[in-house]
Amino acid sequence: MKLQEIIDKVGLKKLTNVEVRNVQGVFISDMLSDVMTNAKSGNLWLTVQTHKNTVSAANLINLAAIVVTHGKEVPQETIDLANRFYVIILGSDLSTYELVSKLIGIGLKP
């Protein structure tokens, strides 16, 4: 599914620049070591982590985008770093679990 389609249908906020990307699967974790081990290229990564080293992990594995849940505020330094490395960060006021319910609703599957 196209990232833009997910952004529109689920109502995600764009916190960084966004470019055309395909999303393949969803990965949920708040541990960067977990991302390094188990996330797959093209995944949409749902997390409550907002530290700038999330950019480092997302870029290494070539994730489609980071979605920060729970309406958590993302520090400007994280956003600046993400923009420089073309890492896309999106935001949602829903909890991780509620966001999953919405993602199923638009047809994303494990």
């Binding site: 960067l32 390094m36 080293n53």
Partner: peptide
């Protein structure tokens, strides 16, 4: 100051 992939304060 490179961004280390590790989990602090978990």
């Amino acid at each position: 100051y490179a961004e280390v992939i590790k989990d602090v304060d978990m």
